[in-house]
Amino acid sequence: MFGMRLRRQLTAQGFLLGAVVCFAVFSWYPMVREFLLAFQRTEDGRTSWVGLDNLRTVVNDPAFWQAWRNTALFTVLALVFGFVVPFVAAVVINEFRRGQGYLRLLVYLPVMLPPVASVLLFKYLYDPGYGLLNDLFRLLHLPEQQWLQDPDLSMLSVVLAATWMNMGGAALIYLAALQGIPGELYEAAELDGAGLLRKIWHVTIPQTRLVLSLMLLMQVVATMQVFVEPFLLTGGAGPEGSTTTVVYLIYQYAFNFNDYGAAAALGLLLLVLLAGFSALYVKLSRAEDQ
């Protein structure tokens, strides 16, 4: 009996040790290495400590502030579309009594597609010559648009593509939260004469507040690290640098300029900003709950 319990404990500890090793090698070590690289410079195979020189290099780069402005704009637009649209989709799906399984599959389908396939689809939609969006505009007698070539439209086009590609997971999380709301609350609201919008405002949102708060935090953190969509749709920088994001600038420093110290310094800045935002958000949420 003792031997069986010992084997179970050793097996459990072995699985736990494997997980810890994986986190240490693939998560913790790169974080520590990035922190060290932010204060180092490697030339001719020799590494030297340079203090804050990498940070000064990054801050003095004209693309630095543009990248932060573009990232902030993407985050705001992504929250407007990527936070609201999945919630509305979940509310609509929750209203159906039949066919919810098919609707859930339909909403989640874009997430299952490879990002490259989704990007190729949107490149076809956005094409100024034969793209479906401009075909629709011509049908409606509206002026055609240069979706990815116009600096004023390129970021919005990237946000719309990113929203379609990533909304499925959030919609299913919202739907699970909605289905956990007691039906008696909606019945009481209906007896009080509440319509659909009032039921959403007074019942749905308060009952899913915790999930909404968590998803807001996760979406801000995720959108501040956007890279795949602008890189694949506009080549990263976009027209006149309109889609250059902070993570793309990190990519440029590391793989185009071979300046890993500057890339690490910029990554460290992004890490500090997101960690500060997360801490402040959690603190404000706790204070509001109390």
Results as ranks from 00 to 15, higher is better:
Phe35Asp: 02
Pro110Arg: 04
Asp192Gly: 09
Gly14Trp: 07
Thr57Phe: 01
Ala275Asn: 03
Val20Ala: 15
Ala237Gly: 13
Val50Gln: 00
Gly261Ala: 05
Ala194His: 05
Ala161Trp: 00
Trp65Lys: 11
Leu212Met: 10
Val272Arg: 04
Lys199Val: 10
Leu249Asp: 00
Glu190Arg: 11
Arg8Asp: 15
Ile173Ala: 03
Asp53Ser: 14
Val119Ala: 07
Phe64Glu: 03
Gln145Phe: 05
Ile181Glu: 09
Leu17Pro: 06
Ala170Phe: 09
Cys22Asp: 12
Thr243Tyr: 04
Phe255Met: 09
Leu10Phe: 14
Tyr174Asp: 07
Thr42Ala: 06
Ala38Ile: 05
Phe26Asn: 12
Glu187Asn: 06
Asn134Glu: 13
Val91Met: 10
Tyr248Thr: 06
Arg46His: 14
Pro151Asp: 14
Leu103Gly: 03
Gln100Trp: 01
Trp28Arg: 03
Leu266Trp: 03
Ala262Leu: 01
Trp201Ile: 04
Pro182His: 08
Val116Lys: 07
Ser242Ala: 15
Val220Gln: 13
Phe26Cys: 07
Val88Gln: 03
Asp289Gly: 15
Val228Pro: 00
Leu172Gln: 11
Ala24Thr: 15
Pro30Leu: 07
Leu191His: 01
Leu55Arg: 01
Gly180Val: 15
Trp147Thr: 10
Val25His: 05
Leu132Tyr: 11
Ile250Phe: 02
Trp68Cys: 01
Pro86Asp: 00
Arg5Glu: 15
Gln9Asn: 07
Ala67Ser: 15
Met155Leu: 14
Met4Ser: 10
Leu125Cys: 14
Asp127Gln: 13
Gln146Phe: 03
Val203Gly: 10
Val272Leu: 13
Gly129Thr: 11
Gly168Val: 09
Phe15Lys: 06
Leu191Phe: 01
Gly235Ile: 12
Val59His: 06
Pro206Gln: 12
Gly14Cys: 13
Val88Ser: 05
Thr244Asn: 14
Leu139Thr: 08
Pro182Met: 02
Gly129Cys: 02
Leu125Lys: 11
Leu148Asp: 07
Glu34Ala: 09
Thr245Asp: 00
Gln100Val: 15
Leu233Val: 08
Val220His: 08
Asp53Trp: 13
Met224Ala: 11
Phe277Ile: 09
Val20Met: 13
Phe26Trp: 13
Gln40Glu: 13
Pro143Ile: 09
Glu229Phe: 07
Trp68His: 12
Leu6Pro: 01
Gly18Pro: 01
Leu175Ser: 04
Gly195Asp: 05
Ala263Glu: 00
Ala287Pro: 01
Phe39Asn: 00
Gly183Asn: 12
Leu212Asn: 09
Ala72Phe: 05
Gly241Thr: 08
Leu266Thr: 03
Pro30His: 01
Ala177Trp: 00
Gly51Ile: 13
Met224Glu: 00
Leu172Phe: 08
Met215Arg: 06
Asp259Thr: 05
Gly3Pro: 02
Ala38Val: 07
Leu160Ala: 15
Leu197Glu: 10
Ala264Lys: 00
Leu185Tyr: 08
Ile173Cys: 05
Val226Ala: 08
Leu274Cys: 07
Val59Thr: 05
